Simulated scan of single mutants.
Amino acid sequence: MAPTPAELIRTLVAGRLPGLVHLAHRPGPFHVRHATDPEGRVLLLVPVFSDLAAELDPGAARDVAVVLDVLDLPPAAGAPSAGRAWVSGWAVPLCGEAARRAADDFAAVDPTGDLLDVGRRFRLHRFEVAEARLETAGTVHRVDPGEYAAAEPDPLHADEATVLADLADRHGPQVVAYLRRQLDLAGDEPRVVRLDRYGLIVAYGRPGDRRRARLPFPHPVTDRADLPDLLHPLLNTPAPTHRHL
């Protein structure tokens, strides 16, 4: 198994990667801090005194159509990109209890102290996703908003770079030996270049060679605490069947 386009979009726009906001018939784009709540609605944390705040003026006669644009940042040089996500909708400013609940949702992803100043120096805006797209390997996938909302961000995304560095630095020889056995490699030195809830992506071959294989976990990871138990048997026992990418 591999992440679906809906899961990839949810992961990319979750709030751990930099985002740009494009506004319909407005200048821009604007850099923005963002997060998503459990339903997948997008939250924008906007300084009250900023160009973006002026464009999202709650006194405007109508809601503002916005597009959040997020590009994946691979965890290491040479690692494949998960793509670029765009989600769009109509931004609505939040106040009172709605703003407090949204601040709690934002803090679950990014516990920035600026959330304490929501209503004074910062304002939260929210939009439900009306359109979702993912561009990967030159192909654009359009995802139904309901499918997007039902998907979940990858629970390993925030820790991916740390886990990959740990595998390479602390378990390098063991990992390489294991991968060589599973991929039936002799001289090439394979390496794990990506990690998600479904398994590992391995690059192998000579420098510049883009051959890759996916080694799946026995079952999808539900949270970070699952990972040690799944990695231990993968590194010490025969692996599930791999699939070349």
Score class of each variant (00 low, 15 high):
E135F: 12
R101D: 07
A102V: 02
P111N: 11
W86K: 12
A165P: 04
A137K: 13
C95T: 01
P155W: 03
A103G: 12
L164V: 13
R126T: 09
A150F: 02
R123L: 15
T136E: 13
A161L: 03
W90M: 04
T139S: 03
P111L: 05
E160N: 13
V143W: 02
A91D: 02
E147R: 10
L164K: 11
L94I: 00
G138N: 10
D110L: 12
A150T: 04
T139F: 08
D159L: 07
L116A: 13
E147W: 04
G113A: 09
E152A: 15
D144A: 12
G119M: 13
V143Y: 04
T139N: 03
R123Q: 15
E131S: 10
G146K: 00
V140D: 06
A99E: 10
E97P: 00
G83L: 06
W86L: 15
G146D: 03
V129R: 03
A98G: 01
D114Q: 10
D114N: 14
P145K: 00
F106R: 05
V109C: 11
A130Y: 01
A103N: 10
F127M: 03
R100G: 03
A98R: 10
T162V: 13
A130F: 00
L167A: 09
W86E: 12
A132C: 04
A161G: 06
V92N: 01
W90T: 02
A91S: 03
A161N: 09
V109A: 11
S88T: 05
D105Y: 06
A158L: 03
D144V: 03
A102I: 00
E152I: 04
V140K: 04
D110T: 12
P153Y: 11
A102R: 01
L94G: 02
P155C: 09
G138V: 12
H141N: 02
E135K: 08
L134D: 13
V163T: 14
T112W: 14
L124Q: 09
D159I: 02
A151Q: 09
L156T: 00
R120K: 14
R142K: 02
F127E: 03
L124F: 11
D105H: 12
D166C: 11
L134W: 07
A98S: 04
R120S: 15
F122N: 15
R120Q: 13
D104G: 01
V140I: 15
L124W: 05
G138R: 14
V118P: 07
H125E: 11
T162G: 11
L124M: 13
G146W: 01
T162R: 14
L164I: 11
R123P: 14
T139R: 08
D110C: 13
W90E: 07
R121G: 13
A103M: 10
L164G: 12
F122P: 15
D154G: 08
G146L: 01
G89L: 01
D166I: 08
F106M: 05
S88E: 12
P153L: 08
G119W: 09
E147C: 04
